[in-house]
Design a protein around this nucleic acid. Structure first.
Lengths: 232, 232
DNA sequence: TGAGTTACGGTACTCAGTACCACTCAGTAA
DNA sequence: TTACTGAGTGGTACTGAGTACCGTAACTCA
């Protein structure tokens, strides 16, 4: 067992048994049987010993995103790389999740990692959607939806709510990448002929219209009074 | 000028001039002319001196979300509370944004705050959509889209890219809350007007309706604020 | 006047993280 | 053998964030 592995093992055990704040780096290195300097040579900070290798994972994600198949496929499979990593960790991932629930330092590092993935997704999506403000917003929303969908499923597995995370992942990411498939389908495949649009658009549009009209109706009495006041 | 205000002023100035890491708490308290203990009585950590009052802002957000008008309205206006806070800070918000770009501690605290808002939105949306897995995912996606849309607009203003953040905000949040309006329309409202008897092609009508609805949604917040102002 | 409250200042401490230097132990070449 | 090299390791000393505790001034309310 390598020095690094012993440090990780000791950190997980002690953080779990006696808490993160209550455990000093000295405790960890003593349990691992190594010097204090060695700890900080392997990990930049105390919490790094129980964090996944986000840097390595990120480069795998970027690698998958850089391939040349359809954008939606690339995004889904790149997110799948991250999920698979957590699943492969097994109990250790679950323990980290419990720790993150009570230790801000661990939680914030974990979310920083997710932000890095999100930015990688964003870059890939933006490259396809363009950079005008509306497309920019759309890309941000989709990139964020992908990470969120991933996280929702991952969290369910971490908490032991589901035993079929990969199945749920496919469903969740299909939902998250829906607008991506729609926009790239219309803008790339068929220029404005609206063959696929014609099937689903009317009901959706009708629902949205009803709702907006309803909202407007809420405002109408006030607006009418406002108009009357202005007329005087 | 209160002690707290002097500390904040000193922290912003020194962090900006000589960098966050290069500035010690002793530097800050010396510039503010107070004791070191006083700093940590006002702020739990060094970076807190330049962070907005997320706790106070969060309770304002929750207050707005707890009202009884339409969900989409509550969510949009609650997010607007946060945007308005940053806009009111002016140059100070921009300085913080620059600092967050280079200081992980500040950035992670800022995202932690946004996560808190996101959870408040999530609770409100989930209460309306239900808690089965699909609805849960939907709620998470929408809550995240709201925060993302807010952040996209905010960031554009922080970087000086736009001078009309509130207009962009209305547009961005109309987009982010689109699925929210659609889903609640089916469950809450029923159509009140029958279809017109004209002989226009259905797709053309649908497309025209879609544009009108989108424009109407953008205008709704403005009309609502206008009505509120007059009501006072 | 005295008791409680609030805000501030000082001292001493723990511990994370850094800088620097020394050691060990491989492998390699002379 | 000896000498050299480089990676991994360990020890020591330091800086600085954050905490605990105690003392003090001012202000308020009996």
């Amino acid at each position: 067992m390598s020095t690094r592995a012993r440090l990780i093992e000791a950190a997980f055990t002690l953080f779990d048994e006696q808490g993160f704040e209550e455990t000093t780096v000295d405790d960890v290195v003593q349990r691992a049987g190594v010097g204090r300097t060695t700890f900080f040579r392997h990990f930049r900070a105390k919490e790094d010993a129980v964090l996944p290798d986000h840097a390595g994972l990120l480069s795998q994600v970027e690698e998958r995103l850089a391939q040349s198949d359809h954008l939606a496929t690339r995004v889904v499979e790149a997110a799948r790389v991250v999920l698979d990593h957590y699943l492969a960790e097994g109990e250790r991932a679950r323990l980290r999740h419990r720790l993150a629930g009570s230790v801000p330092a661990i939680r914030s590092r974990e979310t920083a990692g997710h932000r890095a993935y999100q930015r990688a997704f964003l870059a890939a999506i933006r490259a396809e959607l363009g950079t005008d403000p509306d497309a920019e917003l759309e890309a941000e929303l989709i990139a964020n939806a992908v990470v969120t969908a991933h996280n929702v499923v991952l969290r369910r597995w971490l908490r032991g709510v589901t035993e079929t995370p990969t199945t749920e992942f496919d469903r969740a990411l299909a939902r998250a990448t829906e607008p991506l498939r729609a926009t790239t389908a219309t803008s790339v495949r068929t220029p404005q002929t609206s063959a696929p649009d014609g099937e689903v658009a009317p009901e959706v549009t009708a629902e949205a219209a009803r709702r907006s009209v309803a909202l407007l109706e809420e405002l109408l009495p006030t607006l009418r009074r406002l108009a009357d006041d202005q007329a005087q």
